[in-house]
């Protein structure tokens, strides 16, 4: 287990280094002179040169990369060219919103997706399965933004059940915080729920036909234990894989959802930065996203090994 953990950590570290290189080069590869962007209306060659010297754009790429990495490591991602606020501070206020939204959406997706998937598998060929399949198809087909708009239209504007936009910090008012996030989380979670449902259904069907399920029934175990413990535990490996792959989609989905519901999160920050060509912010945003991917994948792999002993104990001679 420990050697597995170490090798997995090492892989993550290498990926992270590669990610920083891509982020760094990606921003450098953008068309146009960054000094021009910094300078704004100024076109005076002397001040452009001053900017280049100040930000080190004249130095070799290697040196610039080193500076970028070492600064990033100390938490200094530069300042927004528009507002002059440190990127780290902007992230610190935006990230918690997005993390909370994504976590809630993930919760929605797991509860609905796994639940409906299990029902569809157990009730195969009966109305419950058809209903679950139809819901999954809808969930996959309906775009986030449309669902969000409909939710606002019918559940906020028409009935006033939920606020249409805005955000309240969890630490200020937890109930109001959740109240604001219910709709965005459900909207963001539906697509993922549909994917999870289909995956759960197919891997549950496979598990339910397995010999160990026959053994479990032959032991006299009731349907709850047979389905909920013996079959589900085996199905979860595949479901977790799908979740890991789809979490990236959750991040990009969050960008759209946050925009619709006016949440001051990571997505809004990203969009604003892109529209305003705020390079340091874009760089920070991409770096954080890449890191998030890597961390999520690491956690997914850890989860596998918790679920399936064959992965946990791989390499350990029996």
């Amino acid at each position: 287990m420990r050697s597995y953990l170490l090798s997995r950590l090492w892989q993550s570290a290498v990926t992270l280094v590669l990610a920083t290189i891509v982020v760094f080069l990606g921003v450098r590869a953008l068309p146009g002179d960054p000094a021009l962007a910094f300078a704004g209306e100024e076109r005076d060659p002397a001040s452009l040169a001053a900017i280049r010297a100040k930000y080190g754009f004249d130095d070799s790429l290697l040196l610039q990369y080193w500076r970028f990495v070492s600064k990033s490591l100390t938490g200094d991602l530069g300042r927004s060219t528009r507002t002059n606020i440190p990127v780290t501070d902007m992230l610190a206020s935006a990230l918690p919103v997005t993390i909370e939204l994504s976590a809630l959406a993930l919760g929605v997706a797991i509860v609905i997706g796994v639940g409906a998937g299990v029902v569809a598998a157990v009730r195969r060929g009966r109305p419950a399965e058809w209903a679950a399949n139809a819901l999954a198809l809808l969930g996959l087909s309906i775009p986030n933004f449309w669902l969000g708009l409909m939710a606002i239209l019918y559940l906020s504007v028409a009935t006033g059940l939920f606020p249409a936009s805005g955000f309240v910090s969890f630490f200020e008012d937890p109930i109001s915080n959740l109240h604001h996030l219910v709709l965005p989380a459900v909207v963001l979670g539906t697509g993922l729920a549909a994917v999870v449902m289909r995956q759960t259904r197919s891997s549950m069907l496979e598990a339910l036909g397995a010999d160990y399920i026959r053994t479990a029934r032959a032991k006299g175990l009731g349907p709850q234990t047979v389905i909920g413990v013996h079959a589900l535990r085996n199905s979860l490996v595949v479901v977790v894989t799908i979740l890991g792959l789809q979490l990236g989609g959750l991040i990009s989905g969050a960008v759209v959802t946050e925009r619709i519901f006016g949440l001051p999160g990571f997505g809004k920050m990203t969009l604003d930065a892109v529209f305003q060509r705020d390079y340091p912010v874009i760089q920070g945003v991409v770096l954080v996203t890449a890191t998030a991917y890597i961390v999520i994948n690491f956690l997914v792999d850890l989860t596998y090994s918790l679920i399936d002993p064959r992965i946990r104990l791989a390499g350990v001679p029996s």
């Binding site: 026959r214 053994t215 006299g220």
Partner: peptide
């Protein structure tokens, strides 16, 4: 039947490779 299976009436199956649940000790 559940009360009887595994108690008074027990089964052994052909495939010991797959008849045990791989994720439990």
């Amino acid at each position: 039947l559940r009360g009887i299976r595994g108690d008074d009436l027990a089964y052994i199956f052909q495939e010991p490779m797959t008849s045990l649940n791989p994720v439990f000790t």
